[in-house]
Design a protein around this nucleic acid. Structure first.
Lengths: 229, 229
DNA sequence: GTCTATAGGAGGATAGAC
DNA sequence: GTCTATCCTCCTATAGAC
């Protein structure tokens, strides 16, 4: 627990929670992100010593995982794969891509980290393995439903389509981060889906969802979390 | 210059050149790659002191750029965008993807580095900016030719198709590095092209190119360089 | 061109007091 | 739960001799 003054009144704050926020800030800051971010700085932001911080997280990797888990928890409140189905899921992903363009720092963390975590010894390796499996599985289900509705433009294996979709999202992020003028991630993704799904563009429906999504994203507590998808 | 014994005879080797090789080895080794790789180890591999190494490359970043430039020089000898045209270029990319699957270390370097280099202050930022522009431009030309031949399946802007292609290649790499069983990069890319190009699968032609490409890749001096594409 | 020596710093982590 | 003190490792880079 830490005592801090907010809006004039004394507030007790959970140290662990604050640390996760501070960790997020530091790890999402470029250049360097996780690797360059130091426990020293995080401790300083929390207003505590390094040793104090390490009492809660036994080392730097553990704190990283806590940060990632925290984002996931929030993501699930915003884009829930289990709720949506079929085309609706794809639309949500486009919406997500559009939103992501407003939080470059977080995107950069996930982009860099997922590349780094590629090696089995990286502290977040297991995390990303599970995450990609989950995302692919969810998108696979979406494509399977679209296929069942007979809306698939050409013969494709739902799983392969999911891999391609995931790849497209990741790849667009790299180009966009490097040069934001090079591509509009959301438009590019929508274009991609148009190649697979018959009648992907049902404008009225899309706009309805647009409005709904905009509302929830703006109000959503930790909307930034969506990036991790 | 450095004296070394190879095949029993005394050979003089250009130190700079050897340093670039050593740098490649160290920077492509995971985990950590460029960031984790130290001048200390590179110097040790070359068989000289850190100070000696820094005589040739004024700092670590400079050495990195030398490594990247060296790879590019070799790439150009293997996949030359200017030679191929239209569908042939796309096929070359698929071939490339297949080859890349045999050199995970190099792919990992480029994958990680392109994510890191996303921030303007990264030493390789300019390098990747130029590289992506070049690649997109080249692929744009290919799609433009395909469009001129009337082989485009649906209306798409050649530039957008190039962005999507680049994204697909990058994104597939991330998933593949994380879990090689998750996807076959080359197959996935070919599938992607099938959605754009009429008659992409002309088996005879493909096999002809297959053979030709296999030959040049196996014999090519620094075939690994292709990864940078 | 290459080496020795060393400056100068950052970062992760631990021990033990309070 | 938190702090002080401290250790140890590792790095980039420079100065100056050979």
């Amino acid at each position: 627990m830490i005592a801090s003054r907010a809006r004039g009144s004394l507030v007790m704050v959970d140290t662990r929670e604050v640390s996760v926020y501070a960790g997020t800030t530091v790890f999402t800051r470029m250049p360097g992100g996780y690797r360059a971010g130091s426990l020293r700085e995080i401790a300083q932001r929390v207003g505590m010593s390094e040793a104090g911080l390490l009492h809660h997280f036994k080392n730097k990797s553990t704190l990283l995982l806590a940060v990632l888990d925290h984002r996931d928890e929030q993501s699930r409140q915003i884009v829930n794969f289990d709720d949506a189905d079929g085309v609706e899921t794809l639309r949500a992903l486009v919406k997500l891509a559009r939103y992501n363009a407003s939080i470059p720092g977080v995107i950069e963390l996930f982009c860099t980290l997922s590349a780094e975590a590629t090696s089995p010894s990286h502290p977040a390796h297991e995390y990303f393995l599970r995450r990609y499996e989950y995302v692919r599985e969810s998108i696979t289900v979406a494509f399977r439903r679209i296929a069942d509705e007979g809306r698939l433009i050409r013969e494709i294996d739902p799983y392969r389509a999911a891999v391609a979709t995931t790849a497209m999202m990741d790849g667009l992020q790299v180009q966009w981060l490097l040069d934001p003028t090079s591509t509009d991630m959301a438009d590019a993704l929508a274009e991609f889906f148009r190649g697979y799904v018959r009648g992907y563009d049902l404008d009225a429906l899309e706009q309805l969802l647009d409005a709904r999504a905009a509302g929830s994203l703006v109000n959503g507590e930790g909307a930034g979390a969506v990036a991790s998808l």
